[in-house]
Amino acid sequence: MNPLSPVAAVGRSTLALLAAIGRVTLYTGATLSHLVRPPFYFREFLNQLMVIGYFSLPVVGLTTLFTGGALALQIYAGGARFNVEAVVPQIVAIGIVRELGPVLTGLMVAGRVSSAIAAEIGTMKVTEQIDALVTLSTNPMKYLTVPRVVAATIALPLLAAVGNVIGILGGYLVSVLRLDFNGATYIRNTVEFLEPSDIISGLVKAAVFGFIVALMGCFHGMASGRGAQGVGRATTNAVVSASILILASNFILTGVFFTE
């Protein structure tokens, strides 16, 4: 074996990574430029708002409900070590609203929506429907990508807002039913503690996650290889890359919002 081959392998993957970043960047640029130029397919946008937003509500609701409940139990148990069990409402609220609400919503929607978008667009590519769109004088970026990206960017903050409320409700139910908190006090503590900036920062994050989810679905769908295998790979790539980008951008955004 050539002693340099591990180095070559590292070089190759670095180049591949850079090339991928370049392609995603170009694709993002193209999406944004089509976004601001007519025509805008409003009906497609409404459809996608339904598919991405409305139909994700049950998943997001269940995820945040259970997470809020678990969070309350953990904080109670952890807080007991310092005799500060009473901080449950405040920490649940801040944990859900700033972090878990938007991030879990983003991740769940990434699993549900990125994959569906990538599979749909990938299948369209493989069965020449994208070519057919072009010959029918319809730009696939405008007809497929832009409505999905805009819909997801708008839908995610709304979903995250609902997720926040349900997550806090999960904490409330556990605290009141299991941990003997007073319901009215719990709600008062939550409301008085939360700052508008906590909520807004979380919703801004969610909007960024929405953009990422739809963009990754469309990008990998459009880049799909030929055949069923190509579509399968595109679907996996979409979910994995969307999830990683959500977590990475969450870290960066948290740094931007909360370091003085």
Partner: peptide, 29 residues
């Protein structure tokens, strides 16, 4: 492209649209 019509080998119909919406695709937008 507006001067061309193309029948694809595999049909390439849009499966999210009904038959008439497929046929009239160009006439609807």
């Amino acid at each position: 492209l507006a001067r061309f019509g193309m029948l694809f080998q595999g049909g390439a119909l849009f499966d999210s649209l009904t038959v008439w919406q497929n046929v009239a695709f160009r006439l609807l937008r």
